[in-house]
Design a binder for these strands. Structure first.
Lengths: 158, 158
DNA sequence: AAAAAGTAGTTTCATTTGAAACTTTAATCC
DNA sequence: GGATTAAAGTTTCAAATGAAACTACTTTTT
């Protein structure tokens, strides 16, 4: 190998264009969306993202336990414990110790919790609709499938 | 309005299926990817995400200042200040106070910084390639355009 | 040209986060 | 059936984060 070639190879700097790097783009996008949603609605209802997710889940799945919520909401048990605590202190959620296992509690929205959820859902739905306003139904379906595939791949790589 | 109808309307609970809610999906996806990348490479090079972004940017844009980096890396000035501090303490980055404005410094990768970047880029690139391995070139192009559009829309909504 | 206002980057401080340790209860093992 | 191991949630503690205050300098105003 010639000296010239060796030098040129050492100097070769691979480069990476950050704004096109998928992990960066996804983080940036999800950050913008989360901040935007939090600014609009979390403040309005005094709700963290973890709390919002739990309330949304309990809306359609009343009686879930903390452990069951974890994978469905992608939250760890510490976050869930704190969120549940706050939600139950603010009277939006009720814990019912399980007959069969007293370490665990089935979680239910109270009337106040349901009322709040009924107010938030249209706002959340509307935000999502705005995000996708310029997408055709076909495009939405494609985006959906892309996200599912990326999710599965990322899961496999993790 | 009949009594029956009124009751049924009060009981009507709108519901939101969390796993299909775009903000949730994006946050989950970007979290999985970031954690996976961090586990693999950030540890390996003792590099936070902010540091990685700054190094990547300086690789192709030597001499940027902290203020210029902020929008390019989507980082706030506090994060940049800390990341730059750590990078310069570990000898990967060098600050050169600007002649014209002594509050500000042009930032450059040192030789060590460049060497490290040259090692990471192929790994990062490879990770992205794996994520997209099942996507055809056309699909990649579509994904790219979807992300750009979502980015622009989210920006407008924020 | 001194005073006021603004900017680049740093530091401080209070909050958020998550891993590890802990408590209580349940299941499994001699 | 008492001892051991495991599981559900909670608490603790240390690190990460980010808003606000601060420092050092520059620009604008009068």
């Amino acid at each position: 190998m010639s000296k010239v070639k060796a030098v040129s190879m050492n100097d070769m700097q691979p480069s990476l264009y950050l704004p096109r790097f998928l992990p960066y783009r996804l983080t940036k996008l999800s950050g913008m969306i989360s901040r935007s949603l939090a600014a609009k609605y979390s403040k309005m209802f005094d709700l963290t993202i973890a709390e919002w997710r739990i309330v949304a889940l309990l809306g359609s799945n009343p009686g879930l336990t903390a452990r069951e919520i974890a994978p469905l909401a992608s939250l760890d048990k510490v976050s869930i414990s704190r969120a549940v605590d706050r939600l139950s202190k603010s009277g939006r959620l009720e814990k019912r110790i399980l007959k069969g296992d007293r370490r665990s509690a089935a979680l239910y929205l109270t009337r106040a919790g349901k009322t709040m959820l009924a107010e938030i859902i249209p706002l959340a739905q509307n935000y999502e609709d705005q995000l996708l306003a310029e997408f055709s139904p076909d495009e939405i379906e494609m985006l959906d499938s892309f996200l599912n595939r990326l999710d599965a791949t990322a899961d496999a790589l993790g």
